[in-house]
Design a protein around this nucleic acid. Structure first.
Lengths: 150, 150
DNA sequence: GACTGATGGTTGCAATTGCAACTTGTTCTG
DNA sequence: CAGAACAAGTTGCAATTGCAACCATCAGTC
């Protein structure tokens, strides 16, 4: 190839993929072992928790979480089926749905957090010193947002 | 929860998830836009390329890539169907399959690399200084392997 | 106000994935 | 060496995902 990436860029990339796969896998397995739903449910509910009390429109959730809209639509169906969220048509825009978290949704967040939090302690806190964690977070932010003045 | 993870651990974790999602998505979209197969094909072929000339047993590929065996079995079916790899029964163990990359497999690696490599340049090399890339790689390695003396 | 193009969301369909059961062959134990 | 436990892969089935077509509504233009 014309201008191949530098070796250290490739290494960083490879390790990013690997780290994410390994750690995420650990979390998913832990959740499943505890009889809890998949992580993406937690993420959705957490977004909705943060967006209280107004809730979010579906496309806003999709943007934040980088989920395709069809995927999201059916994911929300499942959450509605368990009464973890409620979907109601938006007063200002009849096409749109406004999504809100329910009491049961909060309850599930509360039950998932101990397992999820423990994973974060084991996987991140136990393996990196505070300064290292901060540095890692900083570098990952650069990776996502570039050096743009935000 | 009893002993919640520190804020910086949570931030680092959240950014890791986000970084991986955003960057990986970019790569997948680029590959698709170029009419190329998904990244996991590349990864498998690359493992097999590295393992020349003997090839690998299926479970070895599974271990390296953290793929479930049923998933892997069918993924390899697809690669065989395109003649990118060949599967033949292992002489020492009649249960096992030995997998090798073919000429067409190498050819596909060669065609995917420009697109993949460009992504790495854009996503990693362009956004982090060399020292930052090395530091990131270092921290991610700690995250995966712990501080164990390797 | 009717027409055109964009937007928010859903749905049908095909491809991928995960789980559990199964097949075949190996290894261990007595 | 028989029998039990185990390991490598495959397969059936259900759940999830992605893509494209679609429906309904909204916004802009004339």
């Amino acid at each position: 190839m014309r201008d191949p990436p530098s070796a250290d860029a490739i290494t960083a990339w490879a390790r990013l993929l690997r780290a994410q796969t390994v750690l995420l896998d650990h979390v998913q397995v832990s959740l499943k072992a505890a009889g809890l739903p998949p992580l993406v449910w937690y993420d959705v509910l957490l977004e909705l928790h943060r967006a209280r009390p107004e809730g979010l429109r579906q496309y806003e959730i999709g943007e934040r979480m980088l989920l395709s809209k069809s995927n999201l639509s059916r994911l929300l169906d499942r959450l509605v089926a368990r009464s973890l969220i409620e979907r109601r048509t938006c007063p200002e825009d009849a096409r749109a749905q406004v999504v809100r978290i329910t009491g049961a949704g909060h309850e599930l967040l509360r039950r998932m957090w101990p397992v999820y939090g423990r994973c974060i302690r084991e996987l991140v806190e136990a393996r990196l010193e505070p300064a290292e964690r901060r540095r890692l977070a900083e570098l990952l932010a650069l990776l996502v947002d570039g050096r743009a003045p935000r």
